[in-house]
Amino acid sequence: MAAALRLEGVSKRYGDFEAVRDLSFEASPGRILGFLGPNGAGKTSTVRMILGLSRPTDGAITVLGVGDARKVRDRIGFLPEERGLYRRMTPVDAIAFFSQLKGMPRAKARRRAEAMLEAQGLGEAMRRPIKALSKGMAQKVQLLAALAHEPELVILDEPFAGLDPVNQMSLEAILKSLAAHGATVVFSTHVMEQAERLCDQVVLIARGRKVFDGGLFEARSAAPRTLLLEGAVTAADALALPGVAAVEAQAPGEDGGLRLTAVLAPGASGQEALRAAFARDLDLTRFELREPSLYDAFIVLTGGARPEAAR
């Protein structure tokens, strides 16, 4: 199946500053791609180039089969990181307006807007000015405005920011539904749990360069597995266990002992370390093998920038 989105060796320079360097990746129809990276990594510059809002300095971008996204803008849905709507407009007018801009006839756009607002529990607010809505409600309206014309490629910049957990769940369901219906969803987020729950593919960039492109399992593999040890144990005890490459953190434990996080060497077995701990009669109250999360992988791959801190 042809990729809905393809970037080949894309770079973007602003004077002497290179915001994006030699970036290549693909997104296939019906899949959800997480576009992750710390602040200043080049995500917004990349999104603007994908949308045809700015020109790449080098490289080529193919969107829905064409070399210029502006030719297929009716088939793209876009939600920018910084939200904005006409404050005096009503939700139904706003969604209908943006759908009309995407080529939907006025009457159909209004019907679709009303139906979407009802479905998302905003039926009562649909004719109130947006300035009278809560931030979460307004954000939902803007998301609906980006999706109302049933786009084939959806690009969402931090779509979960500012939403409460219930609305986040609701948005996750919408994105899964879009992908299930064949749309390609590209979204950026700093909430790694959401990316883990939603993404089929992850593209990680840092300082303008791609540092990872692949599935979630592969991404997690980039970070080492760790052992959580708690009890009357020292860092030297932990380092002496087979497969332990380093002790990353230590803190006072709940029972007066220490809590250590030991990093396992690639390919090392947690079972072997456990057996050795028993054999050496270590006084452990807790022994836990932890698989790396996307968060851990993010930190390793981006060179230590934590997602929250990066914001």
Partner: peptide, 15 residues
Amino acid sequence: EKSSRILEILLASAS
């Protein structure tokens, strides 16, 4: 529109 970031959405929707 610039201050409320609507302009960016408009640019993604129209020339």
